[in-house]
Amino acid sequence: MTAKKFWSWLAVAVAAVYFIVPLAATMEFSMRMRRGTYSFDAYRSVFSDQRFAETFSYSVVMALITIVVGALLIVPTAYWVRLRMPYLRPVVEFVTLLPLVVPAIVIVFGYLRLYNSSSVLPLTNSDTGTNILLVFGFMTMSLPYMYRAVDTAMRTIDVAVLTEAAESLGASWTTILFRCIFPNVLTGVLSGAFITFAIAVGEFTMPSLLNRPAFGPYLALIGANKAYEPPALAMIAFAMTWVSIILINITTRLQKGAAGAR
C-alpha cells in the first residue's frame, strides 16, 4: 500500500517538475527585460503594440464567425442524421474524423491549389474571399471536436421523442430546431465552441499560408524578431488556454447536472 502510494507521488512529482519548470522559466524570462531587475516591461511592450490588438481581435472575430457558422451547420446536420438518416451515421462520423487524419497543412495546401486566382472559384483573390476560406479552414479543423460534442449532447436528449412531442403540439420545423433542439444541446455546442475558439485563435499554419493578419503568424513574427516579448506572449496564451479549459469544464459540469436532474 505504502509502496504504491510512494511511486504514485513520485510519478506526480516528476511530472510536476517537467510541467512547471518551463512555465516558471518562461515567466522568469518574460520579466528580464529591464536590466538587473524583474519587471513587467515585456507585457507592457506587448500590450502597447498595435499589431497585438489588431491581430488578436482579427483572430477572435474569425473564431467567433467560425463558431456561429459551424454551429449552424453542424447542429442541424447531427439532428437530421439522428432523426431521418441514421444509416448515414457511420459515413458522417468518418468524414468528421478525417481532419484528424489529414493535417491542417495539407488541407490548406489543397485550398491554395483549388481556390487560387486561376481557378474556377478564385477565393484567394480578395481579402473577403480569403477570410471565408480561413473560416471554412477553421471549421474543418474543429469539425471532429464540434461534431462529437453536439452528437453526444443529442444522445442524452432523445431527439426523436422530442421532435414528435413538438410536432404533436403543432410546432413547425424551424420552431423545433431553434426552440427545442438548439437549447437542449447548447452545452454541447458551447464546449465545442471553446475548443474551436482555442484552436482558431492560436492557429498558425492556416492563416500564415493564407497570408492573413492573424494572431498565430504575429506570434511567430515576434518570436523571430524580439527577445523578451515572446515569453510574455507565451504566458498570455497559457492563461487564455486555462480560461478556455475552465469554461469547458464548467459547461460539461452543467451538462452533467442537467442530465442528472432529468
Binding site: P22, A25, T26, E28, G216, L219, P231, A237, F238
Partner: peptide, 10 residues
C-alpha cells in the same frame, strides 16, 4: 504551437 516553442526557448 508557437507559444509552446517560446516557453521551451525560455
Amino acid at each position: 504551437g508557437v507559444p509552446l516553442a517560446f516557453a521551451f526557448l525560455a
